[in-house]
Design a protein around this nucleic acid. Structure first.
Lengths: 344, 344
DNA sequence: TTATATTAAGCAATCGATTGCGATAAAAAT
DNA sequence: ATTTTTATCGCAATCGATTGCTTAATATAA
């Protein structure tokens, strides 16, 4: 049962007393093979339970119908959704997906990319790790003729296709909404500023304040609060200020917004009346907390589809001069209870 | 820049005026190559930016350091976590992961498995789709010498390694806990009974009732309530019974438990005092609802690691007679507010 | 110093599928 | 009846890396 050799086109050829090239032709395009022998070949292929060896085929053809995906974490809703979206499209196209997670480690990201290069994938789709350094590994990949698409977290200095959310705009919208609800002292929980997405979200926050003539209060801006625990910690500090904020924009994630909610509840503060809370990502749970959390939907799944389509529609052809595009997806502010004051 | 040929071992060999076989030896095991030439080869390989072609290597060696994973949906917490766990281990072992989603469609599952066979993966890890029919595609894979591991949702009639949660035991424990808390009329929301996991959870429910001498009340058992909406619907029906239940075990998911919670709250019932609620899966949100929901943790991520380790420790070697094992992971009951009565 | 062992490196086949080119035979055109 | 076209199919090279075998060169033993 085990280690038995798989049947190859040669086995089929030998059995039918014909040449392997005919078998190959019959099983692929069907060109230059008479209909009779074609059917015979297909029939015996089925009988012998023949399965094509993609390794050999791809080696010969010099191309691999495979796309590599590198994300920080597979089991983070946003990334899982994006991957699901990508898979949806690549499956239709008959492509395979090889998936790696960098675990937010640059070293590991480099290894992942190198493996994908070895595998001769035709495209690498990547969202860079938190401690991204330079893009040499990605440049390498491109030099080897591998297409590259960055999404969400991108390295600006690399001239590639990029698919992003308009983080700045979404943040500005969220903060503007808070202002419209009458909140006066709006705090920001920000993420690692070496990642663009967090820089942009901060920019949006600042832009909104400026637009409405609100002062920027440095003591209300908390760094690196991107987990539930860190969010809770930052919130404790904020709410113990002599002049505390009346709203917190957890720009890093809904998880940190959850931390905010917990601390606020523990301190007996009414959300949204005494404290407005806004998260980011539209995680499933934001809908069902009490109060439900206002947040920003990134259309993750459709983002995945967009990314994959970008490859198939713009990059697959061998046109030499394809100008890398930047596709921006506008996220949507989802207003829920945590920012809707009953009375202002 | 594009379509430029990648450097091969022949390029290196030519440049150094030696034979390609030496290059290969130097770059892999380093056997039968003098230290001097080895270093020279390594150096020029780096200079020429050489990357091994895994396709060629794997074709020649007749093995592919790749594992295929097939799950109904990538972006479902449980599966995403399991995959993350698998990836963690396979990465350490230098293996790649090819991931497919069956979308709960049997037809698509078959296609996925066939692709993986073509790719010559050395192992397929699968959780079968909801409309699973027979296991011919999986038998095919095994006939081709591909190892097979089923997890969570498994086909019983296939003799393979299996990694499962002890759903029955976990359910029994949960229901016993409800009984210990003094609940007398415990309802069950059950899932599609063609999937084993749901059958087992029901069995656990029944076992607990029997063990404690409680009668089985058919009117308290509701079928196919595995979304929040369906859970809510079933709950409405249950709570409008003349003799209504005082606890509901949403064995399908935490989402349906959420539906229970919403309806109960709407009807003004106090949870946990007037109605106990228990979910399944330990989704992130169960911790932060009010009241927080008692549920069952499946250790998804560690399950993934277990699965991968099973392959590397038990199946990788070429021993002919490896007896397929069934590994059972005991889930953990997480007791929270929704079932802890203040007074009994 | 001769015989033997050891090391280093080359040669060539191989993995399985694909494909350009040439050969044969059958069909069509003259 | 002869030439030309076309349809089928075989031959052999190729993709890039690996590996058993052979040869050459060097080191060790006798």
């Amino acid at each position: 049962m085990k280690n038995q050799k798989r049947t190859t086109i040669y086995d089929i050829a030998k059995k039918l007393n014909i040449n392997a090239s005919s078998v190959s032709r019959a099983l692929t395009n069907g060109m230059n093979v008479s209909e009779a022998t074609r059917q015979l070949i297909v029939k015996t292929a089925k009988e012998l339970n023949y399965k094509q060896n993609s390794l050999a085929s791809n080696l010969r053809k010099g191309q691999n119908q495979t796309i590599g995906v590198v994300v920080p974490r597979i089991n983070q809703n946003f990334f899982a959704d994006v991957i699901a979206g990508i898979e949806e499209v690549t499956y239709q196209e008959g492509y395979n997906l090889i998936i790696c997670q960098s675990n937010e480690s640059y070293e590991r990201e480099v290894k992942c990319v190198n493996t994908l290069i070895n595998q001769h994938v035709s495209c690498i789709i990547i969202s860079i790790s938190a401690d991204f350094e330079d893009g040499q590994h990605l440049k390498n990949a491109m030099d080897q003729g591998i297409r590259l698409i960055q999404f969400d977290r991108v390295a600006d200095n690399l001239d590639t296709f990029k698919v992003l959310n308009d983080n700045e705009q979404a943040s500005e919208e969220a903060v503007s909404h808070l202002i419209a609800q009458g909140y006066k002292r709006i705090a920001l929980l920000e993420g690692p500023q070496n990642l663009n997405i967090f820089k942009q979200r901060k920019a949006g926050y600042l832009a909104a304040l400026k637009k409405h003539g609100y002062p920027v209060l440095p003591e209300l801006i908390k760094e690196n609060a991107w987990t539930k625990e860190l969010g809770a910690e930052a919130t404790s500090a904020l709410l113990n200020l002599p002049d505390r904020p009346d709203a917190i924009f957890a720009s890093t994630s809904d998880f940190s917004a959850l931390g905010v909610l917990e601390v606020a509840t523990k301190m007996g503060l009414n959300v949204p009346n005494e404290l407005g809370v806004c998260g980011y990502s539209n995680e499933a749970f934001t809908e069902i907390t009490s109060p439900s959390i206002t947040t920003i939907d990134q259309y993750s799944m459709s983002m995945g589809k967009t990314i994959a389509n970008l490859y198939f529609q713009n990059m697959l052809s061998d046109q030499v001069n394809v100008v890398p595009k930047i596709v921006s997806i506008k996220p949507k502010l989802i207003i829920r209870s945590s920012t809707q004051r009953y009375s202002i």
